[in-house]
Design a protein around this nucleic acid. Structure first.
Lengths: 358, 358
DNA sequence: TGTTAGCACTCTCATTCTTTGAGTGCTAGC
DNA sequence: GCTAGCACTCAAAGAATGAGAGTGCTAACA
């Protein structure tokens, strides 16, 4: 994948060509590059170089007498080159800083705020998916009885609240619920949600005995936990700004846009697409690299927010291959950094985290 | 607004013409109507009638030698005629029946389910907005302390849960929170949320004294209540299936679709649009009747779900003027009926609602 | 008086042909 | 190795044409 066979001059020409194309959406022509004084070479020499770059697979012509557009390989070269050189509207993003620091915010709320802001700043459709709630640590479990034979189950995690409704067969009084919550907290505190579910499934009988007094609850809790995971698989995806796609000239034709827009409405598909692993925290999948006909003209930029090396949430930005890579790369880097920062804060002991009362 | 000046024959021709156009999107021509044996008249006679209908403002020609399409007046005639004669995929809708009966479901969850289902059944973009939470009755108020100087505030209503996070200056212990919740419940139970806010604002000092022991909380609760109303103004709108608009031939041009699609992403605008009052439970606003240039080619079908005559939630279906009025009318009627049915259930005392324990 | 057959007229849409010009590749000379 | 110059290519836009779908109008008929 290295571009060793490119002379320094070719690299420079190619970079400028792609940059130009990203900005203007007009095929790259020798004349235009000369008149923009992007080079001191003559248009004829440039033509030779562009011709060679085409033969090497970085560019392609739509027809004999047209300018050239980048191929996936061309974009890939460009992305690898700008990698550490990104611009972004950081000021616009600053506003979500405090959202990361507010831990009690509902997790589905959190991903909304993040997606809204990134979509606003980048001007592309943005998807955020909550991928690994099973890796979140349990801080406390609370059960709140409601009228009508139901109760609300709350799980506090360092990243925010998870909640779910429990169906009961009888009404329990408030104190029983509080006590049950306390027992469950003592039992599962410091485990991850995944570990808790594992533990419940493997040591079912053992725990049931241990929880003895609240065994009645326990059956419902188990049930609620399973459906909670399901629930978050569905609710844990939020997409914003789909129609921003239509601003781009490549989507002036409804037929072209339809497939992508429909995908942007399909939460389940989005989830698998965005959470799919990629090397590095931030990665771009360009056109055919996505192995999906509907997306052959798209690029998806992905970032994974991790705790202890495991992905908790994934952010995806979807646009045409001709997207603003530098800006997007900057925005995603900001998010990942902020996420890691609050992560550190937490490990070192956040001074706002006072005495607990569970 | 009456169509008294129309002969029976003209009414029949007009109705069939509009019905045809809604189904096929092809301008109505005398030839086509004859060959579909929708009439025993000759095409020439039909042409005379269509001509008259055009002069009366029910139809219009795009150009001299083209067929005719309905005007807003034409659609309006059609809608008024089918009013009580609607077809809908009721089986598909049946599935949401139980959602209405589950009271503890989070209200923002409820509107999602409803919008998803209606959009699926009608195949049009659907918006549901929670318009009148201030008219909901308070069943109980609960405060749940969390770590990190915050608490969760829950308000139970006959329609579902409302929740919000409270910022605290100090950590309160669990028992204080429960007690405070109980006191607040006793104080505000059976009031509507609107009455509670009123009461808090006018009798601020009085209540503060009354709540004496929990006065510390009270300031935060007030704050939380205000932001709760704001929060639901923003979160209380859910839109589904925007891209379904693109299935319709009138939106094959991106420029045409853009405005409406953008509107479908703007929650605040949607809210005002959908909640706007209309006569009757179900109403259609056709094209220019909407007084909005962006929507001049759209129809919006609205339904208001009411409790004691006041609108709590509004459902809107957005499509081209050439939308399937009968199907949509049926779907909306179903929703309104179901809503009223559970309302009644509740007034008569739901047998599932057991002894309370607040 | 209402209905209809027949015909002239209109206007869009698809097709074909032409022209224009932007852009390339190649070659010969610097 | 670079570049001026020229022949060549091809898409895109415009003009011309014909077909056909549909109308309005008129005159004749029941």
């Amino acid at each position: 994948m290295s571009d060793i066979d490119l002379s320094e001059r070719k690299k420079q020409i190619l970079f400028q060509a792609v940059e130009d194309y990203i900005e203007n959406a007009n095929p790259i022509t020798s004349g235009a590059m000369v008149s923009k004084s992007e080079t001191t070479l003559s248009s004829a020499t440039l033509r030779n170089e562009l011709n060679t770059l085409e033969q090497m697979g970085y560019l392609k012509q739509l027809h004999t007498s047209s300018g050239r557009v980048p191929t996936t390989k061309g974009y890939r070269f460009f992305v690898n080159t700008i990698k550490d050189n990104c611009k972004a509207d950081l000021e616009g993003l600053m506003k979500i800083k405090n959202v990361f620091e507010t831990r009690t915010i509902n997790l589905t709320e959190l991903i909304k705020v993040v997606a809204d802001k990134i979509s606003e700043v980048t001007d592309y459709p943005t998807v955020v998916s909550l991928g690994g709630i099973d890796k979140l640590e349990i801080l406390s479990i609370k059960i709140i009885p409601l009228m009508t034979y139901q109760a609300l189950m709350l799980i506090e995690t360092p990243r925010g609240l998870l909640n779910n409704t429990l169906e009961l067969q009888q009404n329990f009084d408030e104190q029983s619920c509080i006590d049950a919550g306390r027992v469950l907290t003592n039992k599962f505190k410091s485990m991850t949600i995944g570990q808790m579910i594992d533990s419940i499934e493997t040591k079912h009988q053992e725990i049931l005995t241990e929880l003895n007094e609240y065994a009645g609850f326990f059956e419902y809790v188990l049930q609620a936990l399973v459906s909670l995971t399901k629930q978050y698989a569905k609710d844990g995806v939020y997409s914003k700004g789909a129609t921003k796609l239509l601003k781009n000239p490549e989507y002036q034709n409804v037929e072209q846009a339809k497939d992508v827009l429909r995908l942007l409405e399909d939460k389940e598909e989005l989830k698998t697409l965005i959470e799919e692993d990629s090397d590095g925290d931030i990665a771009f999948s360009i056109g055919d690299e996505l192995n999906d006909d509907r997306l052959s003209e798209c690029t998806i930029a992905k970032a994974h927010c991790k705790i202890n090396g495991e992905s908790i949430a994934s952010v995806g930005i979807i646009g045409p291959k001709r997207m603003d890579y530098a800006k997007i790369s900057g925005a995603l880097k900001f998010i990942v950094d902020e996420f890691n920062k609050t992560d550190l804060l937490e490990l070192n002991g956040d001074n706002k985290k006072g005495d607990k009362n569970g």
